[in-house]
Amino acid sequence: MKYNVPNWLIIIGGLGQIFTALIYPYIRHRVFDWYTDVKQLKPLNQEIAKTYGRYIQGLNFSFGLMAILLTA
């Protein structure tokens, strides 16, 4: 069975992912006070947490960009 997803729906999803990636630092800092919690970790775990956060942010932005650019 083949499903046909409208391009506008994919573009809206891509914009949502880009918005999520851009708003992520604000939410992490202002809403969750994430840096205070990370400071309580050991240095290696701090770096792992920061790297994981950047990885998720980068994936959201990248997949959003691909969804917008490759919909044509």
Rank of each mutant, 00 (worst) to 15 (best):
Y35M: 06
W34M: 06
I18V: 15
D37Y: 13
L59C: 13
D33P: 00
I18Y: 04
A67L: 02
L41F: 13
A67W: 01
A49R: 03
I12Q: 13
L59E: 06
R30S: 12
I23K: 11
L65C: 06
I48L: 14
I27K: 06
L22Q: 14
I23S: 12
K42A: 15
F63D: 02
Y52V: 15
M66P: 01
Y52F: 14
H29Q: 14
Q57T: 05
R28K: 15
A49K: 04
Q57R: 05
Y26C: 03
I68V: 09
T36L: 04
L44V: 14
Q17N: 11
A67P: 00
I56A: 08
D33G: 04
G16K: 06
G58L: 00
L22T: 13
Y52S: 11
I27C: 12
G16T: 11
Q17S: 13
T20C: 13
Q46F: 01
M66S: 12
M66L: 02
I23G: 03
G58N: 05
Q46M: 12
G13T: 15
L44T: 09
E47T: 01
Y26Q: 06
W34T: 11
I11W: 04
R30Q: 15
D33T: 13
D37A: 15
G13H: 12
F32C: 07
S62M: 08
G14Y: 03
V38M: 07
Q40F: 03
G16N: 13
L65V: 06
I23A: 07
